[in-house]
Simulated assay, not measured.
Amino acid sequence: MDEIDTANERAELMTNMAIQVALSRQPKAPSSGVCRACGQAIEAARLQANPAAPTCCDCAAEAEAEHQRRRKLGGRG
């Protein structure tokens, strides 16, 4: 691989990274108002705070607790 190939690969990588950053900054679509996990209505206060919230408060808390548990176990469990 020569210097031109290396430079082209770097330019492509930087372009892809810039595209990902730009996409991550786009506003998310508003929530449907129905929790994706349990199917119940998402609380109005939660939707006011985060219009794109995909889950209700209870399911979000459960998901966070599971995430913390997995972090403590180091991915085992």
Rank of each mutant, 00 (worst) to 15 (best):
T15Q: 13
D2I: 00
A63G: 03
M17C: 09
S32W: 00
E62S: 05
T15F: 06
K28V: 13
L23R: 14
E62Q: 10
V21R: 13
R71V: 14
G77D: 08
G75W: 07
R71T: 12
A63M: 08
A7I: 01
S31I: 00
E64W: 07
E12M: 08
R25G: 15
P54M: 05
V21I: 13
A7T: 06
Q26V: 12
R71S: 12
A44G: 05
A65Y: 12
P51D: 04
S24V: 04
N16C: 08
P54R: 03
R10G: 07
I19A: 04
A53V: 03
C56E: 02
L23T: 11
R69I: 02
T15H: 13
R46W: 00
L13E: 15
T55C: 09
P30E: 08
R70F: 11
C57G: 03
E3Q: 11
A60Q: 10
A52H: 07
R46D: 02
A65L: 11
L73Y: 06
L23I: 09
L13C: 09
A18Q: 13
L73E: 15
E9K: 06
P54L: 05
E12K: 13
V21P: 04
E64A: 10
A18M: 14
R25I: 11
D2T: 06
N16R: 14
I42R: 01
D58L: 12
G39N: 02
I4C: 02
A52P: 00
L47Y: 01
A22H: 02
G75K: 05
A61L: 10
A65N: 14
G75C: 06
A65F: 15
G74R: 12
L23Y: 10
P51F: 01
G77T: 10
A41G: 05
L73I: 10
T6F: 11
S31W: 02
M14I: 14
A29P: 02
A53D: 02
S24T: 06
P27S: 06
D58R: 14
L13F: 12
I19M: 06
K28E: 15
S24R: 06
Q68M: 08
A11T: 09
R25M: 14
G39V: 03
A29C: 03
D5E: 15
A65I: 09
Q26W: 06
R76K: 12
N8E: 13
E43Q: 05
P54T: 03
N50D: 14
E64M: 12
A7C: 01
V21C: 05
E9P: 03
Q40M: 10
R36H: 00
R10L: 11
G77S: 09
P51A: 04
P30T: 09
G39K: 02
A37W: 02
R69T: 12
A18G: 12
E64C: 06
S32M: 01
A53G: 03
M14T: 14
A49S: 07
A41Y: 03
E3D: 12
L13K: 12
E62V: 00
A52L: 07
P54V: 04
C57P: 03
R76E: 15
N50L: 07
L23C: 06
R76M: 11
